[in-house]
Amino acid sequence: MQVIKIEDLYKTFKTYKRKKGFVGSIQTLFTKEYITVNAVDGVSFGINEGEIIGYVGPNGAGKSTTIKMLTGILYPTSGVIEVCGLIPTKDRKRNLMHIGVVFGQRTQLWWDLPLIESFELLRHIYRVPEKIYRDNIALFAELLDIDEFINTPVRLLSLGQRMRGDIAASLLHNPDILYLDEPTIGLDVVVKERIRQFIKEINIERKTTVILTTHDLSDIEALCNRIMIIDHGKVIYDGSIDEIRRRFGTESTLLIEFKEPPDQLEVDGALEIQLEGIRASIKFDRKRFTASDLISEIAGKYPVLDLTIEDISLDGIIRDVYEEGKLHESVS
């Protein structure tokens, strides 16, 4: 079942050109010169119930703007958004009742009050039944360890604690859809792993649909079955991670340790060779050669002690995709 449907979505921001200096600022008052930014530039996609979507793209790509429109806070310039059959800006309250939102760089918690007070308030705002509320608090205590700091004023929490608090807060009312905009920003590996496990658990247990924005692609690898890449307001890739690997991640690296340092190393089909003493790293394209071809060729010529194969990281692939996107743009 499709829970989110976006068709031909545009959001254009107008900012008035500001001129420098005093005279400039006077001029600004009287001229109506402005710059337009197409933050979201014709985006269409559908998301099914229970999916975890990785929504990635370079800084300024339009990710947060898309999410703000999905929550009904920002009005689209044009296009259609439907979330569980509701139009977010029209049915603002009803839409907000069944979604959860985390903006990693902000907090919805009351800064000066103990964490539990914010939860109590949200319980009333979302009219969460007593039992569900208590079960959820227990669950969050178990999975996120929030009970350790639940009575501490939020302003005294560490970033990781606050983020766990915010994520718990966004899930108190068992939302059908969870929007996470950079929920792991600035967190250490242990807390990150915690949060990932938690999101996975919630997704499986409750069929919560998750849209995750992050610059840490290991989040995406750990959680998402589908990835959408957006750049300059346009979706430039939408598909599975396996597919993206197959299409873009065909470059592998063979790391070899020799018994004795070869004078020089020649391998047919290598894209790039680096030799340092007894160690060599050889890049090759898996579409054209298999690893075993390459290994037998090398082992035939040189005495090999040890070898490993490294696939290109998702980071590397995504970087290539961004760059390819830029390539298309400069051509068109």
Partner: peptide, 19 residues
């Protein structure tokens, strides 16, 4: 209505933090 009452309470508590 209850929600607004609670917001009001929290806002009061928040002020109290600065007494």
């Amino acid at each position: 209505m209850r929600a607004y009452l609670e917001i009001c309470k929290k806002s009061f508590q928040e002020r109290m933090a600065y007494r």
